[in-house]
Amino acid sequence: MGNSLRHIRVIAANTFTEAIRQKVLYVLVVFCLLMLGGSSFISQMDFKGDDFKFMKDLAYAGISLVGLLVALLGAALLIPAEVEKRTIYTLLSKPVRKFEFIAGKYLGLVALLTLFVTLMAGIFFIALWGHENALTARELAAGGGRLTEVQTQLVGEYRASAYDPAMIQALALIWAKLCLVTVICVLFSTVASSTVFIVSCTLFVYLIGHLQMIAREYFLGGEVAQWWWKIFLAAVALLIPDFQTFNLSDEIIAGNTVRWVDTAPILAYAGVYALVTLTVSALVFEGREL
């Protein structure tokens, strides 16, 4: 057990290093430009007090998109490349189990996603802080260096929006969703070697996962008569994760109250689903001839 954990850690660290040295961090530049462009756009437009909501929408969409790109390409490129370039032969000639390889690769990618989400969140928070400062300075300038009661209330609202602690929950939900996409991509990587095929299959599951709730309701409602349709709905409801549930982050962005007790079960759901999928991936890979 101790050896297994050590092997997983070594493979995860190597996967992380590989991704970093392949200059994937460059996509962060895209995110920075997005945030800079977004902030400058906001400062020139009048959003009637929805500035921060607009910025949050933009940032969360950016983090989700860049994260999805990193998750998909990371898993779809790194695992098949090990088989394609036969580096896996050398690795598995050592006393390393196949499940250690799969778990190590996945955890390396999770570490990469964690770094990405953290860095992007950092950039986002700096943009929020900058915008809040600019708005407060504008109010101060308008009041000749002193704030009226209305302005004080307004500045208070800016600060509440800019430094809303619930944003951490929204980021945690996005991170968990990305980890789930990664594990699905890892599962497809254990059976196929074509990057296009793996990415397509994962995106298909991702899309279906957003409709999973509808499939579940139809299946449980018993409104469908055809047996094949029932089987399909049952399979979707049971096997595909419910990605829609992570959209609780939209409520946070909208400024509605969401507590950790609402978020925690979703994070736990993501954790259990990832663990089960990782186990299935390892079992599938165990039987695969290289």
Binding site: N3, R6, H7, V10, I11, N14, T17, E18, R21, Q22, K85, R86, T87, T90, L91, K94, P95, V96
Partner: peptide, 21 residues
């Protein structure tokens, strides 16, 4: 033999060395 090209000779030996404990 193909090895992770992003590693140096020493790093690749360190990597595999850790896998043989």
């Amino acid at each position: 033999p193909y090895f992770p090209g992003f590693l140096s000779g020493r790093e690749v030996l360190n990597y595999y060395g850790k896998l043989v404990n």
